[in-house]
């Protein structure tokens, strides 16, 4: 063992430095050990950070896997606009999956409630993974988002039917990840597990990462629906589904999280810069997923139940 060399001060690594190094290490382990990995890309800010980290992990090579978007056809137009651009910038192939059955049966968020998420996202994801034979899928979930996520491993093992058994998770020691699995089984990998919402925003600022403009406030056409405030992203479609247009008011709004536009609550805001968005987040008194309808189903165990059924 050598003693410290003279005149070499220790270099301090910040929490963001350490989180970045950990995420990159995780991605490289997956690429080294999985046969056919893919990165699930939902176009939100967490996906943006995850994609940026992938570019860093494999530079100067492009990330050696594809991006997969399990689409519901109900995402914001701004999201679709950024989707292809991000893939192109990273030099990656973009795969988009639509659940044909959901499309044929006209499953939509207004008429079908929780079935919309189940058919388009949960079933759609399983179909896509099976179709392409992916054995490892990166997801941008963070442990600070939700109670059952807080207990999930970084390498989360799924049965051949994509089920998650929370009571029988593999122990995860140090940063030694067990990526072994039988044929047909797969692993969901969460490189952002240890990031918090504030970390994500700080990193977006520090690294100048492009995100969907919907995160910033702007005057947007909105309507109230079942106690929530939503944006009219496609008036024609809204009218078709609801039978008539609801009362539309222009408000200065933004989104704390992005999903299907009829399911993603808008918040009234004046934050037009990253710093202002972070400021609003720090001063806010409600949690991030509050704007999303998905967690409130099935009492407190909504997300856990969805995950057991194969949702990401």
């Amino acid at each position: 063992m050598r003693f410290p060399r003279k005149n070499e001060p220790l270099m301090k690594l910040t929490h963001l430095d350490r989180l970045e190094a950990e995420s990159i290490h995780i991605m490289r382990e997956v690429v080294a050990e999985a046969q056919n990995p893919v990165m699930l890309y939902s176009i939100g800010k967490d996906s943006a950070v995850m994609l940026h980290l992938a570019k860093k992990a494999f530079y100067p090579s492009p990330p050696p896997f594809s991006l997969l978007h399990v689409d519901t056809t109900w995402k914001f137009r701004d999201m679709y606009a950024l989707r292809q651009k991000s893939a192109d910038d990273a030099g990656m192939e973009l795969l988009v999956w639509h659940n044909e059955e959901a499309k044929e049966r006209g499953i939509n968020p207004f008429d079908h409630g929780p079935l919309h998420t189940d058919m388009w996202k949960t079933q759609g994801l399983k179909q896509a993974l099976d179709h392409y034979g992916f054995d490892a899928a990166f997801g941008g979930a963070r442990r600070d988002e939700e109670k059952s996520r807080a207990k999930e491993r970084i390498f989360s093992f799924r049965t051949a039917s994509h089920g998650w058994d929370p009571k029988n998770q593999r122990p995860e020691l140090w940063n030694v990840y067990n990526a072994k699995k039988a044929k047909g089984e797969s692993i969901r990998v969460f490189p952002l597990s240890n990031w918090t919402e504030l970390d994500i925003w700080q990193y977006i600022m520090a690294e100048n990462i492009e995100i969907v403009p919907l995160y910033f406030s702007a005057p947007r056409p909105t309507f109230e629906y079942e106690g929530g405030l939503f944006m009219v992203d496609d008036a024609e479609r809204l009218e078709r589904v609801l039978g008539k247009l609801p009362e539309i008011t222009e408000r200065s709004v933004r989104f704390r999280t992005l999903g299907c536009w009829p399911l993603t609550g808008a918040v009234e805001s004046e934050a037009t810069t990253l710093a202002e968005v972070v400021q609003e987040m720090l001063l806010t008194t409600t949690s991030e997923r509050q704007g999303r309808v998905i967690d409130k189903d099935e009492g407190g165990a909504g997300m856990e139940k969805k995950k057991q059924e194969g949702y990401f």
Partner: peptide, 26 residues
């Protein structure tokens, strides 16, 4: 106690990771 079984039984089953920060550390 995030898992349904934990809330029902009033016990902690699995490691839960939590995050907080003060002025000095995360």
């Amino acid at each position: 106690d995030g898992l349904a079984a934990e809330r029902e039984q009033g016990i902690t089953i699995d490691v839960a990771y939590r995050f907080f920060a003060t002025e000095k550390r995360k």
